[in-house]
């Protein structure tokens, strides 16, 4: 019996889940189709095997209950501990966030804004760059993308560039 749809329908039928005309059709198919009847018998045998699986006796209830009670109490304590810890962590996180905001406000008040402007001020402090490279020319500039002060050293003789920042 290869018809998968019929097999599926049979599976529902043996479970009492095939209703109405489909159920009647299956009943009539079962009467006329020996292979379908054989499959139904196999499905029944599977059910019997499943019901026949042995279950060993349960371990003593008292031992189980003492373990459960221990875990419940442990879990409750852990829950309290973790919630207290979580609460503390929450407040600590809030305090750190507040401190960061205050620091950012202070920086803005000091320098006017973040990023390039602040770096621009420090870039102006670069007055002299000394190198060991003979005949090298140096270039100091502020990189707009990174906001960093770049010191560029160009070797005149070989035309190669060494860079540093």
């Amino acid at each position: 019996m290869k018809d998968n749809r019929k097999r599926k329908a049979l599976s529902r039928y043996v479970d009492g889940e095939l209703r109405g005309p489909n159920s009647s059709r299956m009943a009539s198919d079962l009467e006329s189709d020996a292979s379908l009847r054989a499959l139904k018998a196999e499905y029944s045998a599977i059910g019997e095997q499943l019901r026949d699986l042995e279950t060993p006796p349960a371990p003593p209830g008292e031992k189980l209950w003492s373990d459960i009670r221990r875990d419940i109490r442990l879990g409750t304590n852990q829950g309290e501990d973790s919630s207290a810890f979580g609460s503390r962590l929450h407040w600590a996180g809030g305090a750190v966030a507040t401190a960061l905001v205050l620091m950012m406000v202070w920086i803005v008040m000091q320098y006017g804004s973040f990023g390039t402007a602040a770096y621009a001020d420090t870039a102006a402090e670069v007055e002299w760059v000394e190198t060991d490279v003979p005949n090298a020319s140096t270039m100091v500039y502020l990189d707009d993308d990174t906001g960093m002060t770049v010191i560029w050293i160009l070797e005149q003789e070989e035309g190669a560039a060494n860079a540093g920042s």
């Binding site: 699986l53 279950t55 060993p56 349960a58 371990p59 209830g61 189980l64 209950w65 459960i68 009670r69 419940i72 109490r73």
Partner: peptide, 24 residues
């Protein structure tokens, strides 16, 4: 907890049997 313990005692065997059926 003690009341819960009573419930555990009542259903312990059945709950264990269900668990055994599934985990074998």
């Amino acid at each position: 907890e003690e009341a819960f313990g009573e419930i555990v005692r009542v259903f312990h065997d059945r709950v264990y049997a269900v668990a055994f059926r599934y985990v074998q």
